[in-house]
Simulated scan of single mutants.
Amino acid sequence: MQVWAIANQKGGVGKTTTVVTLAGLLAEVGYKVLMVDLDPHGSLTSYFQYDPDELDHSVYDLFVTQGDVTAVQVKSLLCNTNVESIQLLPASTAMATLERRAIEHHGMGLQVAKALRHLKGSYDYVLIDSPPVLGVLMVNALAACNHLLIPAQTEFLALKGLERMIRTISMINRARKKKLKYTIIPTFYDRRTQASVSCLRELHKCYPDELASAVVPIDTKFRNASMKGVVPSSLDASSRGVNAYARLLRTLIEQQG
């Protein structure tokens, strides 16, 4: 089971779009996919028509259960989506209180990793949508994954968020037995603007080995898909944005062998 975390310490860079699009493309070629929403804002959860304010059970339960969570408890949290082979472990707004709990209770950084162990064999891929803040939820995402995807908006303010994320990876690597592999995904690219072109050039210069060759352009089809609550490839499989993610996915699968 491959576990990919999608994270960046800046909001609005395309994390949820990356999760949803890759999940849809993986499902189309026959893989079973679990999406995990670790963002208290619950954008991924809302995308599939679940209300983070109304859910009785969510990822939050993994952190408040006394003792280690059981397989039955984990499976009881799963929600179906409108794609048969994609399921969702949803977020709730109660997750915003977890940072305070983490101060009071040590050892909360591996809760998601422990929960996912109960699901081995049930899914081919797990995609984790992370919050844009370094805290207990992002730490859980980074501890649980074997590959990190970092969407980076092609504008210069986003480069500062990327720099913070790279420093976070260095910190996490000191605590891991094995270095965390990561791939930077250029997003919101607009070749008509000098800002986008210059930013992409800077990404190539600073991160030549980690930068994905696929560049995700600005594409209104992503917004249309989110309004309908469907994966983008089911709305328009030939759109520029979906094609970019399809190229990215082929590269990621080739890299993992």
Rank of each mutant, 00 (worst) to 15 (best):
H106C: 05
H106P: 10
G107N: 10
M108Q: 15
G109W: 05
L110V: 15
Q111L: 09
Q111G: 01
V112T: 02
V112A: 04
K114P: 00
K114S: 07
A115F: 09
L116N: 02
K120C: 00
K120E: 05
G121Y: 10
Y123D: 13
Y123G: 11
D124W: 05
L127A: 03
D129S: 06
P131G: 04
P131E: 00
V133L: 09
G135F: 12
G135L: 03
V136S: 00
L137A: 03
V139M: 10
V139F: 03
N140P: 12
L142M: 14
L142V: 10
A143L: 08
A144F: 00
A144V: 00
C145G: 11
N146G: 13
H147D: 12
L148N: 03
L149V: 13
I150F: 06
I150G: 02
T154Y: 12
T154C: 15
E155I: 02
E155K: 10
L157C: 00
L157Q: 02
L159H: 05
L159K: 09
L159M: 14
K160R: 15
K160H: 08
G161V: 12
L162W: 02
M165C: 13
M165I: 13
R167V: 04
T168V: 11
M171W: 13
N173M: 06
A175I: 06
L180C: 14
I185R: 12
I185C: 10
T187A: 06
F188R: 15
D190R: 05
D190Y: 00
R192D: 11
T193G: 06
Q194G: 00
A195H: 09
S198Y: 11
C199M: 02
C199G: 00
H204Q: 14
K205T: 09
Y207M: 14
P208M: 03
E210D: 13
L211A: 02
L211P: 09
L211G: 07
A212H: 12
A212K: 04
S213T: 11
V215I: 13
V216C: 09
I218E: 13
D219R: 01
T220A: 09
F222W: 07
R223G: 06
R223N: 11
A225E: 02
S226V: 04
S226I: 05
